[in-house]
């Protein structure tokens, strides 16, 4: 690949070892987390899932509270019509012309396309092989709609993992992003998320995904005179629609 430049890895690692005055091999005093058996990680994950399902109501409440503190506009939809109506009204208010959305199961539960089309907007899906994509440039969209894989109550965060039909830029390029969150996707804290993703990697390796994005509210900067400006390179407006029915 890249030859003849840099230090060979064995040599680099040997020099680090020498600086430490250490012998090769695993740590003398093992780190409990790193010597844990897979079965034990799985047990902890199972216990986590049980706890989450028992506390779902409280976790969704906390998610809604923290997410709005972190800059999301949070809407707890009571039914399909309510959820579709919210996005419809938002698109109307923004005078949306072009919507881009991902291809995910959640759009089966919340069919947005007809409502948005009735406003005169065009709906594009960001997926390979989709005819409607055509010459469409997602950078031209004024609204992006996605589902999420998880939502973390502790931080008010939407977590998006890669999969077919989910582009990285649908939640990044348009100035407004709507995330549809199912209550069953709610986690209590960062520990839950990282435990589950760790287990996924231990099971599947890189098949667990090539990236993981946390999104918490709008993009922001305070780089000039420490003055907060909402809307830097990412969306300036983020909406979290919690599909708050059929818990």
């Amino acid at each position: 690949m890249i030859e003849g430049v840099g230090t060979p890895s064995e040599q680099f690692i040997a020099s680090v070892r020498e600086a430490l005055g250490r012998k090769a091999g695993p740590p003398e005093r093992p780190y409990a987390r790193m010597v844990e058996e897979r079965a034990s990680v799985e047990e902890r994950a199972e216990a986590t899932m049980e706890r989450l399902s028992a506390n779902r109501r409280a976790n969704v409440d906390e998610l809604a509270r923290v997410a709005s503190l972190r800059g999301w506009v949070v809407h707890r939809a009571e039914g399909v019509e309510d959820a579709v109506g919210y996005v419809y009204q938002l698109a109307q208010k923004l005078e949306t012309r072009r919507v881009v959305r991902s291809v995910e199961d959640v759009f089966g539960d919340v069919p947005l396309d007809d409502a948005l089309t009735s406003l005169g907007a065009t709906v594009h899906v960001m997926a390979r092989g989709d005819e409607s994509a055509g010459s469409f440039d997602p950078a031209d969209a004024d609204l992006g709609v996605t589902g999420v894989d998880y939502a973390i109550a502790e931080t008010g965060t939407a977590v998006i993992l890669p999969r077919r039909g989910v582009s990285r830029v649908t939640s990044l390029l348009p100035p407004v992003h709507v995330a549809l969150v199912k209550p069953s996707q709610t986690l209590e804290g960062l520990d839950d998320l990282y435990l589950l993703r760790r287990l996924a990697y231990l099971r599947d390796g890189v098949d667990a995904g090539s990236y993981m994005n946390f999104i918490t509210g709008p993009s922001r900067t305070a780089d000039i005179e420490q003055t907060l400006v909402i809307g830097a390179h990412g969306p300036r407006e983020t909406h979290m629609v919690i599909l708050d029915w059929g818990l």
């Binding site: 972190r70 077919r164 990285r168 995904g209 090539s210 993981m212 994005n213 946390f214 993009s219």
Partner: peptide, 19 residues
């Protein structure tokens, strides 16, 4: 409490990734 984005990169895109 957390920054707007935390991005985790595992490597290049996989065949099933859109981008």
């Amino acid at each position: 409490r957390i920054s707007s984005y935390v991005t985790h990169v595992y490597g290049p895109k996989r065949p099933e990734d859109e981008d």
